[in-house]
Amino acid sequence: MLIKQLSVFIENKVGRLEDVTKVLKDHNINIASFSLADTAEYGMLRMIVSDPEEGRRVLREEGFSASLADVIAVKIAQKPGTLHEVLKILFDAGLSVEYMYTLSTTGKDTSIIMKASDLNLALEVLRANGYEVCSDKEAYEINNINNK
């Protein structure tokens, strides 16, 4: 299934990233995982958080450009060659990966966040090849559960 990623546009200004994390902290929103892409002028912070809708609401309230984007979280075994295999399945289906990052490495599987050019087709081909994906709840809480 598809999960919601919280994306925030951040200008390259001192303290701006910290402003984002403070807003989330003040509203008791946990960051399960994140990736920060940077360009010369701005950054794009992509996060899997405990409550993406609420996260977007509070960030917008504080004046940030924040939005939700659909991504998938695929589980892969922690052994050599598995990431390559997943990418090959997507490539063979004619899909491209816009970006990806690690959601969690604790437990027996690693879970990877992916944005593919066609997410539903990606889900379909991954499932057909026996791969599991995280549910939204599972993704948002993944590292909390593991910590317990």
Partner: peptide
């Protein structure tokens, strides 16, 4: 200003 209606989480779109 990057407003909601043309915001994208993909940098290539913003570029």
């Amino acid at each position: 200003e990057v407003e909601e209606h043309f915001f994208s989480d993909e940098i290539k779109e913003l570029e």
